[in-house]
Design a protein around this nucleic acid. Sequence first.
DNA 1: AAAGTTGGCAACCGCGAGTCA
DNA 2: GTGACTCGCGGTTGCCAACTT
Length: 270
Amino acid sequence: MTKTRDRNSEESELRRGPWTLEEDTLLIQYVTSHGEGRWNSLAKDAGLKRTGKSCRLRWLNYLNPDIKRGNFTPHEQLLILELHSKWGNRWSKIAKHLPGRTDNEIKNYWRTRVQKQARQLRVDSNSTKFLEAARLFWKPMLLEKTTADGGCSPSMSAAPPISTAELPPPPPCPKPSSVEKMGSIQSQLYSPDYCNLGKSQAEEKNNNYYYVGDEGVQELELMEAADSYLPLYGCHVDGADWLAEELGQSFLNSDELWQFKKGEELIIGV
DNA sequence: AAAGTTGGCAACCGCGAGTCA
DNA sequence: GTGACTCGCGGTTGCCAACTT
């Protein structure tokens, strides 16, 4: 009984909501001198009227000096897209590959930026259609920007290596009729040679091709797909870089979304 | 200028897994 | 073996600034 009352009064004293500068200072000082962990006792010992949970969250998501501030770089956006397509909403797992970024930050990025695009497309962000749109447009544009920036950002070099076995299949190449409208697209994220196969080689590899239209994803005859797909030789088409500019920054704007929805028919290799 | 809406982000909540006495 | 405690994760909420009407 007494214990319960003590606990209740303790809980009622606990602060919630935004952290003050004083609280931040206390937490930083305590963690700096005593290290992380044992968050409940840490909260008490540091004189913070917060739950251990709240202290841990504040430290990990905000006060930790290793946290990187500012917008996600194209390279980071690319990684998020790739890793999310592989692991789904495993934010902490994804965050381990983006040094200085927290799972919360990545989660928020996904919810505000990525899901917004999906909403505008009127598809689910986990749907095949949306994932393929990302693979076809967003990722190549981000890749281009990353390459233009001189490859991986320095901060990324500290990221744990990702084995190719963990990654999804190589990105596909759009068919010429679409590509001509869409501009410069390079799809060579994991396997630059993947798009450079001759027709017979493609047959040997027994790749399947799919068509993404309003009816969803449909399989195409290999030969028909290969005829329009393979002559791209590396999937690079010059000109009309306007889309690259747009997509590299914010994926699809409304007009592009509209064009996409109107049925820009896309070939994707799987 | 004011009211309403949207976007971005920090913080909270519930739950499950791990640890330890 | 088990119950209490701690930690970490993913989902959700709430606040506030920016933008729109």
